[in-house]
Structures are given as C-alpha cells and as structure tokens.
Computed example of a mutant assay.
Amino acid sequence: MNLNYEEHYSIKDFLINNQEKFEEGLLKEATNVKDKINEIHRIGNINLLGNAHKVVMYIVEDREEDLINFAKYEGIAWAKHSLTLSFKLEWVQAIRRTLWVFLHHYDLLSPSEIDRETFFVQEKKVNVMIDHFFTHFFMAYSKFKDELLEKQRRLVESLSVPIIPIHTDVCVLPLIGELDSLRLTIINEKILTEIGSKSIQTLILDLSGVAPMEEEAVVMISQMIDSVFLMGCKTVITGLRHETVMSLRSPAATFNNQVEYRGTLQLAMKDVSLK
C-alpha cells in the first residue's frame, strides 16, 4: 500500500494525509454497504464516508464525549429514517478493521518501535472507543424506536375509541371491527374517564360496524355497561344486526334494565334532540 508518510506525522496527520486510501480500504471491507452509500445519503442525508472519518478522528484524539454524542445523533438519524441496522453494524466493523490496518502501517513506517505496553494501551483505547460508539448508537436507536412505537400505540388507542360529543351531556361511541379483550379494556378505561371528566349522562353505543363477538367480548361489554350505569350514565345501544344480536343473547350477557335500544344511530340521536 503506497501511503504518504513523513517523520513528523502524528497518527492523526497520517490518517488525514491518507484519507483517500483509508476510504478505499474501508469500502473493500464493507462489501455490502458500499453499494448502499448513495441510497443511505438520499434517504437520511447521511454521509457515511465523512462520518467514518469523524468517528476515526474522535478515536485517535481520545474525544470520548464527542464520540458518544455523535453516536447518539447517528442512532436517532438511522432510527428516524428506518435504515437497516445490519448495514451500520458492518460499516462500524469495517471502520474498526481499516483503522487497525492503518495503525499497523503507521507503526511500520515510523522509525521508532512501539513497545508492548504502549501497544496494548492503544489497542484497549481504540476498541473501547469503538465499543462505546456501538453501545450509544444502539441505545439511541432503540430509545427513538420505542418512543415512536409508544406514540403510535397511543394514537391507535385514541382512534380506536372515537368518543364523539353531540350534546353537553350526551356522546356517541361508534365501534367498528373486531372487539378483542385488549381493545375493550382500552375502550372501558377511556369511556369511564370521559364520563367522569365531562359529566356525561347518556352514552350512545353504536354497534352497527362490529364483527361477530366471542363470549369473552360480550362479557366485557356487559361489565362496561354496568360500570357506566354505576357512574350515573345511561347507555343506548344502536345498530344491532342479526349476528350481533345472536352474540349478545349469550347467557354471559347480563345487561341491566337501564339499557335502551334503538334500531339506528339516527333514531337515537333524534330522540336525544327531542328531549
């Protein structure tokens, strides 16, 4: 390898003056990533080669805090744009191997021999710094993804319980799709919270869009209506189709006498407007 070297060069100087050779070596090591460099830059505005040099400089200058902060920044960037983690893993490992190749050449070109103790100190420092980069990159990546999933979960929960106020003390809850235990638990919690905070007196529960229910779901709806009743709120059920009625006729369903029924949501809303 034809490398530029002068006696006064520090390791930093040596790497800076052989940057193009370093990039060539890095791309040879990262066989799967090299064809993705332009794509990664286009998707996430991430300059892999430029960032690799930044990481290497932080390592040889022993700038641990800057390295960690940069690792966190990169972790968020990769998570935000859903870039493939396997590429990052290969890329950082390629940086590690390429850096050691250049440190070896620097030692061969240097007129002074490095003693064993100095070598092991340097080996520990380099590998620990790269491990720190790995650790903080993945921690930042995971934290961003976890927070994103939590936001999406809350959004889905909110959308799955569309409580619509139609009067100062009347609201409509139109349910659509399959009602499983998790979804019904969320619905129950939100309904009781809304009744308590907004002093709702009438809940119109529209079931015209629900799928046929299992017995567990019927039991949970029955318990939900009982809880609503105990909070001083009346339930009006609308939109019962044949298959829904058959589900609700289960012996597990014990609706109290406070429940009223209307054929359609429109009829229930008309009754409310007339009162």
Rank of each mutant, 00 (worst) to 15 (best):
L3T: 04
E6K: 09
S10T: 15
I11L: 13
K12Q: 09
D13N: 15
F14R: 13
Q19Y: 12
F22G: 12
F22V: 07
G25L: 08
G25K: 10
L27W: 00
K28A: 06
E29L: 01
V33I: 01
K36D: 07
N38S: 13
N38I: 03
E39R: 11
I43T: 09
I43K: 15
L48Q: 01
L49V: 06
H53I: 02
K54N: 12
K54A: 09
E61Y: 01
D66I: 04
N69Q: 13
A71S: 12
I76R: 11
A77C: 00
E90G: 11
V92P: 03
R96G: 02
L103W: 08
H104I: 07
D107R: 07
L108I: 11
P111F: 08
I114Q: 13
I114F: 02
D115M: 03
R116V: 00
E117F: 12
V126F: 03
N127H: 14
N127C: 00
N127F: 14
V128M: 13
V128Y: 11
V128G: 01
I130G: 07
I130R: 11
H132A: 06
H132F: 08
F134Q: 00
H136V: 00
M139C: 11
A140Y: 03
S142G: 10
K143P: 01
D146G: 02
L149D: 15
R153A: 02
R153G: 01
R154Q: 14
V156E: 06
I164Q: 06
P165K: 10
I166G: 06
T168V: 11
D169G: 05
P174M: 06
I176S: 10
I176L: 15
I191C: 05
L192T: 13
L192Q: 08
T193R: 15
I195P: 08
G196S: 13
I200Y: 14
L205Y: 06
G209I: 05
A211R: 07
E215H: 06
E216G: 05
E216A: 13
E216F: 00
A217H: 10
M220A: 11
S222H: 02
M224Q: 03
I225H: 10
S227Q: 13
L230Y: 03
G232A: 03
G232S: 04
C233V: 06
I237T: 04
L240S: 09
H242M: 11
T244N: 09
M246N: 12
A253H: 06
A253N: 14
F255Q: 07
F255Y: 03
F255G: 06
E260P: 04
Y261Q: 12
Y261V: 07
R262H: 08
G263K: 14
L267E: 10
K270A: 15
